[in-house]
Amino acid sequence: MAHAHALTHDDVMRPPAGREPGSGVYNEKLGMWVFLGSEVMFFTSLIGAYIILRFGHPEKWAPPGEVLNVPVTAVNTFLLICSSVTMVKAFASAQDGNQRALRSWLLATVLIGASFVGVQVYEYAELVHKGFVPSEGLYGSTFFTMTGFHGFHVTVGVLCMMFVTWRAFQGKYTATDHRGVEVIGLYWHFVDLVWIILFTIVYLI
């Protein structure tokens, strides 16, 4: 827009030119890292409540594997790790400017991410069928709230990833400007990181 000319266009992947040195990274990446700070605090409140409640009444939690289906979620965790790898491969190919590899890696990430959500929905259906529901007690309340909101974040991530993939197919991401891929990658890895912690403290402890 009209005012953009004050922001020089030479390299958008570096901090804004003609400005005091700030964080050393371009605006969108800094914005995403700051946003992830707030996400950390959001999961702090949910996981913190879980840790506090479980510390208070450990007897209300079943030993690992008794109620929750660990094998299926272990595969699911591996799926999410793979989607992190495909995401980072997509970013690497975006850096190299290899459009075809970028598109295929992005597609792979979208598919694996969506299948993670699918497996989680299946796991929920299985649990609810078995009578393990949020109103069952502390165990059900904390489990469904934490994994539910993590699933919600993964779903939002998959939707954004689809949008980025659609733009990739339009060739919007070149070697000099692939901010979208890097920023959605940061969000995706964060969601994967949260799941890695969640998987351990919910399923394995």
């Binding site: 996400e39 605090m41 409140s45 949910l46």
Partner: peptide
């Protein structure tokens, strides 16, 4: 940034 998400979670 860091306080509002705690309220949202609660």
């Amino acid at each position: 940034l860091l306080a509002m998400p705690i309220l949202s979670g609660a």
